[in-house]
Design a protein around this nucleic acid. Structure first.
Lengths: 345, 345
DNA sequence: ACATTTTATGCAAGCGTATGCAAATATGAC
DNA sequence: GTCATATTTGCATACGCTTGCATAAAATGT
């Protein structure tokens, strides 16, 4: 134990025979300092194993270079990808990321307040909606928030999400084109904004179409096993069999598919169409070949990051809302249809 | 814009008619302060929207309550789960997490040095190995590191990993018991310690067994599609067909399986056994039913977190190394064998 | 060589909080 | 009510760095 205490700029200054301020300048890119003294200082610094203390720097500069990332939806099939993308993009801009997890709205607000205590320069929230109290606190602190996968319109907060209404309408018309009439909607989280909007959109289409209807919707069904069980339950009620199932997650859709194939002998897509959401890799695998919705996550993340950075650099910037178009990928779990009657994207 | 600048403890003190020190005490659990003044202060604080500045606190207390988390293997099937578990566990202990991503060894070292600048109290590294220079710097700064999925023995660093040798031997003997003799090894990252150790273990078993051998090993094969392509290539070379493939990832194994079923008409498990690693959910799905290795990630994460906390609380603690036992889950892609000849775990 | 501009350095005052010490106040025993 | 003791409070300093200002040194022009 040679050095009990970490070396600071004073120590380096003493060793290099300069003032502490000069050491600080040596470690500040673009500061006014001559080449020779910089060398002297660098020598002294490496000798002492000196590294600037960023905490102190943050305090002094009143800017932490920290960005809060609040993550809730860890079971999202792209969770790791998103996290990586966000982390790396923000790192490229010179920020460090501090992550928190939240599972309830209560936790969301607490976590966001924690971020404020850490003097973060900005916050990104994935799949959660803060309370208006908290967004007000953020506005007061002039710390920008960007919501990913939620819309922040009502909160006067920037957000990046998909145009759930458009894709909902597109799904509905595609199914109608394929002569499906009895839709079932299956989702994991009933509070998901995307699901709510898609449901509304689908309902608006079926309302205009004779004989077509949403015969039921169920939520709380999450994952392959749950889907597998659910299709058994659904098919058990002969009176209320759908001829199309729209699922809020590919995983669940794949479980439904497995159920169809194995126990129930349901002919997909002729007896039943199945549509997922997310286009996870197995959906494209040849043995599943699930029709699903592809969400442009990469573009969304990039946009969210850019929006956040812009908000940090110019605090007077108004919140911005972006909606990306999702894409319906028609594969084997929906019928083919003559190209001429195919509705355009 | 009522309050351009954030309120600090001075402002609260002024409003509450006490000294700044007293405000500080009001926000320090267990500090000596009377109930009345605390109330006064809390009233003033909420009025001003005051939140303690943790950056300043960290500087003053010389402890940041920050833990660095360095993540490299984002394609790990459990990446999101691990991250969630780590984040939540450390949060429960009162720490905040700074994440960084690294893809090269160079980046690993840089990221770890960044952590040090942020005065983190400890660091957790997932699936990467720091250089000895960096671990020395950490030792000097008395900041503990815990490696997850790597062994830190050589670096005098704590680590939590699996006993790859044991599971390698177990896989090999299981295959031999099932009359497989020609093993192929497929992996993504050739530098993975686990793969290297498993390979050695398998080799040591085949060496003792007449006729048995590792006929080839290939790395850089990562994911379903890659597996699908790879089995086609492998089977194309009739002279060098294996009768068992051991894969470093379930994804890849599932791709191989799909290839076997679709184009090649390979009878699994009789012509070819396939073993994965990781036991991701689809492996257990009825349509795949992949024999694989289950890794006790949850226990490993808990242990890693506890080890890190222990190291932070007692800096004089010696580094500790833990190896967990992985479990071979025999499913449909390996032959059944009479129970009596089954080798024990 | 001198005056003038440019560049490099030092000084000192913050940034917002914690905390040892001393002073002040409250508490309790008698 | 008094005194000893326990509890609260305030004062002042420290944490390690940045930065405006002033000064010293170096570079430039004539």
């Amino acid at each position: 134990m040679i050095n009990r205490k970490r070396a600071n700029s004073q120590d380096v200054a003493a060793l290099a025979g300069v003032s502490q301020a000069t050491v600080s300048r040596a470690f500040t890119p673009g500061a006014s300092i001559s080449a020779k003294t910089r060398q002297k200082i660098e020598a002294a610094a490496t000798k002492l194993g000196y590294q600037p203390n960023i905490i102190a720097r943050s305090l002094s500069k009143r800017q932490s270079n920290l960005i809060g990332l609040l993550f809730t939806n860890w079971t999202h099939p792209k969770a790791a990808d998103l996290l990586k993308k966000i982390t790396e993009a923000l790192t490229d801009y010179g920020y460090k990321i501090i992550v928190q997890s939240a599972t309830s709205n209560h936790q969301t607000d607490d976590a966001l307040r924690d971020f404020l205590q850490y003097q973060v320069d900005g916050v990104m929230v994935f799949s959660a909606t803060p309370s208006s109290e908290v967004t007000t606190e953020y506005a007061r602190a002039r710390t920008p928030i960007v919501l990913l996968n939620r819309t922040g319109l009502a909160l006067n907060t920037s957000s990046v999400s998909i145009d759930a209404t458009a894709i909902g309408r597109h799904i509905a018309t595609s199914l109608l084109d394929r002569s499906h009439r009895r839709f079932a909607l299956i989702s994991a989280d009933p509070d998901s904004q995307i699901v709510i909007k898609m449901t509304k959109a689908i309902a608006s289409i079926t309302a205009e179409h004779p004989n077509a209807e949403i015969i039921f919707q169920r939520s709380g069904i999450d994952g392959y096993e749950a889907g597998f069980r659910e299709i058994n339950r659904i098919w058990g009620n002969q009176a209320a069999r759908p001829d199309a199932i729209i699922c809020s997650a590919d995983n669940t859709a794949l479980g439904i598919l497995a159920g169809c194939k194995q126990h129930l002998n349901i002919n997909v897509p002729d007896d039943l169409a199945v549509i997922g959401l997310g286009d996870i890799p197995p959906s494209g695998w040849k043995d599943h070949n699930l029709t699903t919705v592809k969400i442009p996550h990469d573009e969304m993340v990039s946009k969210a990051v850019l929006t956040l950075i812009a908000g940090i650099e110019d605090p007077s910037l108004e919140p911005q809302t972006f909606e990306f178009q999702a894409q319906l990928i028609l594969r084997g779990t929906t019928r083919l249809v003559p190209v001429s009657t195919e509705s355009p994207l």
